[in-house]
Design a protein around this nucleic acid. Sequence first.
DNA 1: CCCAATCTTGACTAAAAGGTAATGATTTGA
DNA 2: TCAAATCATTACCTTTTAGTCAAGATTGGG
Lengths: 156, 156
Amino acid sequence: MKISAQEEYGLRCLVQLATLDEGKTLTLPQIAEREGISSANAGKLMWLLSKEGFVKATRGTKGGYSLARPSDEISLSEVIKVLDADEIDGHCDSYSGVKDSCVHTGDCGIRPVIVGLHEIVQNALSNITLAQLVGSEKKVDERFHRIQGLHSTLNI
Amino acid sequence: MKISAQEEYGLRCLVQLATLDEGKTLTLPQIAEREGISSANAGKLMWLLSKEGFVKATRGTKGGYSLARPSDEISLSEVIKVLDADEIDGHCDSYSGVKDSCVHTGDCGIRPVIVGLHEIVQNALSNITLAQLVGSEKKVDERFHRIQGLHSTLNI
DNA sequence: CCCAATCTTGACTAAAAGGTAATGATTTGA
DNA sequence: TCAAATCATTACCTTTTAGTCAAGATTGGG
C-alpha cells in the first residue's frame, strides 16, 4: 500500500503547473529541472496527463504545458486514478494466484477491507485540490489536517 | 496507491490460520490449496511471516503453521507493515528522481499529503484485527463499516 | 536408526514497473 | 521556406517485484 513513482512524480509535475500565472507554460526541460527528474521521464508523464485531459500541450517555439482546468477544480483523487490505472473493480481478477479466478469469488472476507480502504483513500483525496498543494509545507500541512479533521477521526 | 501481491496473499494466508481451532495447524500445501496459490509461494510468505513473529512453524510429520498470537490481538496495520516493508520515513529518499536527494528537501508541499494519507490508512487498519476478517463477506463488511463509521456500500 | 513429511533457505527465472532514447510531427519566426 | 524549439510516440533497456525450484535441516514414527 504505497504510492507509485508515477503517482508521485506525476502529481509533483502538476503542482508545478499549478503555480503558474494565467497564460504561462512550462517546457519539459523546465518541469524536469524543477522536479529533479529527466526530461524524457517528464515527457512520458505529461504525455499521459495530456491524454487524460489534465494538461494542455502546445508544440513549437514558445510551446509548453499548462493545466487544462483551474487548479482548484482538479482533485487529487482524479489525478491518482489515472496515474496509477487505479481500478478497484479489477482487483479480484489481479489476485487470483495460479488459478483462473480467485478462490474466494462469491464470498470473500478480505474484499470489504480492500474496497473500504480504497474508499477511505479516495474520499480523503477527493477533498484536496491541486491549488491547495501550492505553498509552503507548513501551510499545506495545516490545510490537509483541517480538511481531514485527522485528530477527530480516531475510531468512533 | 494499491495493495501489493505480497500484502494480499500474506494477509489471506493469515486469515486461513485465524480460522483454525486452538492447537490445529495447516501445512504449506493446505494453505496453498485454500488460497489458490503455489506451495512454493505460500512457503515464501509463511517464512517471512514466521521471521516477523506472526506465525509459529513446526517441522516434521504432523508439523505446520499456526498463529503465534491470538487472532484478535493481531491488527492489520502490523501485518501490512511487514508484508510491504512499509516505511514512510524513507519516502523522500525513494523518490529523488535522477538526483541524490529530493529537490524539495526542506520545504515540500506534497509531503504532508503523503504522510497524512499514510496516517489515514494505518489508522483505519489498526482498528481491524485478523479475527474480524473471519466470516462471511456480509458480516465482515458490516464490521468494517461500523468500525470506520461509514455507510455500508455492499449491495446484497 | 532410517525414512517420510515438513519447514528453511538461497539461487534462479519471469513479469511488471520504471525509465531512456531515438525518431517523427507541429509550430514559430527569421 | 527553412531551421530551431517543442511535444508525441514507440521501441528498448533497467530495476524491482513476484514467483519457482532444488537442496538442506528438523521432526516424528516405525
